[in-house]
Computed example of a mutant assay.
Amino acid sequence: MSVAMKDLFLETLKREEAGTRKMLERVPEGHNDWVPHEKSMKLGYLASLVASMPNWIAWMIEQDELDFAPVGENKSKPAEWKTTADLLAIFDDSMKKSLAALTSTTDEHLLTNWKLKAAGYLVTDEPRYINIQQGMLMHWAHHRGQLTVYLRLLQAAVPALYGPSADEKFF
């Protein structure tokens, strides 16, 4: 029995949706400019990034390339938010777009190359499925991990994601 790549990606996204939503619901409002360290990104930007990253899958499927740091206006920059409802709306829209793109694609298309650029310079030119796995799903896990640390430092409850947390037990 073989499983289509797109189905594996769909299952992964759906499996991660509830935990990501729970995490985003706990991001405290009114702290968007807070940073744990001068080299860290601001909480508001990080939360928006986590909420909007699923949309990257749609970009990887529907476009042949993306320049994430273009010279001039950056249309792919995560949206700013003020309320938890705003943040969850960004997440819902992002999930909707990614699930639709995955549903409508084929494994043959996922085998074709996709380019990521920064300020016009080529960062990667690899098959779409590699970019989805490495450049979005694994990268998303990294930023969600960062966000759990921010939650802890702001005294917000950290959700149990892949096992119990100090704030949430499975039993």
Rank of each mutant, 00 (worst) to 15 (best):
R26T: 01
H142D: 06
W56M: 13
F9D: 06
M138P: 01
N131Y: 02
Q146H: 15
P127R: 00
E16V: 07
R144Y: 08
A156N: 04
A51T: 11
S98P: 03
D67R: 03
E65P: 06
T84F: 11
Y45Q: 09
V158Y: 09
D67K: 01
Y162C: 00
I61M: 08
N55H: 14
A141R: 06
T84M: 01
K22E: 14
L137K: 07
L137C: 09
E65L: 02
K96E: 11
D107L: 00
T83A: 06
R15F: 11
A141Q: 11
W56C: 04
L46C: 08
L147N: 05
L87W: 12
N113P: 10
P70F: 00
K39P: 04
P127E: 06
K42L: 10
F9E: 07
F68N: 09
A18H: 01
F68C: 07
I132G: 07
A51L: 09
I130D: 08
H139P: 05
G145S: 13
I132C: 06
A18I: 03
W59C: 03
M1H: 15
Q146I: 10
A4G: 00
L116N: 04
R144W: 09
K22W: 03
L66R: 01
A160E: 03
E11Y: 11
A69K: 14
A18C: 00
D86E: 10
W59F: 13
S104N: 15
T103E: 15
A79L: 13
